[in-house]
Design a binder for these strands. Structure first.
Lengths: 241, 241
DNA sequence: TTGCTATTGATTGTATACAATTTGGCATTG
DNA sequence: CAATGCCAAATTGTATACAATCAATAGCAA
């Protein structure tokens, strides 16, 4: 694996109020690592350790970790430190419910504002998704899939929705990583291409509907009945129902 | 004015991921000060100065300011410091659009989950609103009005929506402070009582509709044509269109 | 063996000192 | 007199040292 390909380059845009400077770099690199699965849910993010990796003092690392905590990617426990978030089943449902409410509306807005340049970028993006999928680079395909949704929010030109969507998408990446029945099906959707078509026709209602059903598909493609890596749960094993 | 009445006590609940410890206290007190107008939009929040007020080091203050920046109450400019946010007209529109989309849905959820205890608390809350309004304490009435919406999100029992709504409401307080045509009308709505009635009947659709029209009313009650305290804007003054 | 308690180690929370950056004023110059 | 460049003061960005807290372990007692 190459040392440092920025998987999610435009993930943090200007509209996102983050501590500026070096902190933002570290945020992005940590986020990339988490979304690309190099850091697994539940992993400890010791301030000293992370600081050594990035050659920075704990001050900077703390700021970055706190910023990521606000987006839901990191969980900070008082006097215990920071951990890669491990979304619960409840949280997974909530995130996808929220997405199903918000993103169709954002998609409708995007349909009204999209221009030729945006269209071209989205096409290229979808190509990249297909390429990643073809070369079996599931991790990259998943990351790209998330960026696609963020890009649409960006096109909608609505900073408030953008921030919300961005946070929901990054959480979704964690959720999919934890709960997806089959990772490849989580990417391998025709929905993105279909969206592009609706955009081309300027059909906001269609685009919105496609987005909604796409999200419902993603949601129902999750196995939200049992916690992953959970030992047969003792309680359940002894429950002689 | 009494020295420190916590206007917004349950504003930050456990579901809100904030740096724990003393930082949270300072967050809340700063937030109260901002929402109660003791700190006006655009006011400089110097780290040293704030630190002196709270008898804390800059380390703690910085964390608090960054946390508030994430909720949109504070704006941090690189190497320039933190300022009380001064929402733009665009931002104001966006915030109320988002609220109009999200809160009716949250209200529907709340209708399904509300219990007698919740009802009672909401009734008491509305009484407090009326009392504040009767005694002409507009600032308090406005703050209580915001808390009412946050409380509904809490009743809905949906942590993701709760966080989003909370952030939107606090921003709304700033927006109303800046742009409301008449501050008293921003509180003096019968909508809250009507909502309670719909809750009592368990009529989710009605509750949702009431919430939506309530938000539309609030939105249209804003004067979003001219920036407040804006000098003729130079550029505009010189644009001989 | 089990349960409680105290000590210890490691990690985070906080304060402070130093470095870097910006801004405003002042002097210089056209 | 206006404009530009430079210097200094103030403020933020960063690093590090110290204090506080928690978890784990070892020791002791029942």
């Amino acid at each position: 694996m190459q040392s440092d390909t920025p998987l999610i380059p435009q993930s943090f845009d200007a509209s996102f109020s983050l501590p500026p400077g070096r902190v933002l770099d570290i945020c992005i690199r940590l986020q990339n690592a988490i979304l690309a699965h190099r850091l697994k849910p539940g992993a400890k993010l010791s301030e000293d350790e992370v600081g050594e990796v990035f050659n920075s003092s704990r001050t900077v690392i703390r700021a970055a970790l706190q910023a990521l905590a606000h987006t839901g990617l990191v969980e900070i426990k008082k006097n215990r430190g920071a951990y890669v978030a491990k979304p619960t089943i409840t949280n997974a449902h909530e995130v996808f419910e929220a997405r199903t409410l918000i993103e169709p509306e954002v998609t409708r807005l995007a349909t009204q504002k999209i221009n030729a340049d945006d269209m071209k970028k989205l096409e290229e993006h979808i190509d990249a998704e297909h390429k990643a999928l073809a070369s079996n680079d599931i991790g990259k395909a998943l990351a790209l899939s998330g960026i696609f949704h963020i890009a649409i929010a960006g096109i909608a030109g609505h900073a408030v929705y953008s921030n919300i969507v961005q946070s929901l998408i990054t959480q979704s990446s964690l959720i999919i990583a934890l709960y997806s029945k089959r990772l490849d099906t989580a990417c391998e959707s025709h929905a993105h291409a279909a969206l592009l078509e609706a955009f081309g026709k300027g059909d906001g209602e269609a685009a919105s509907a496609i987005m909604q059903s796409h999200l419902v598909d993603l949601h129902s493609g999750l196995n939200l009945r049992t916690l992953p890596n959970e030992q047969p749960s003792l309680a359940k094993a002894l429950a002689d129902i």
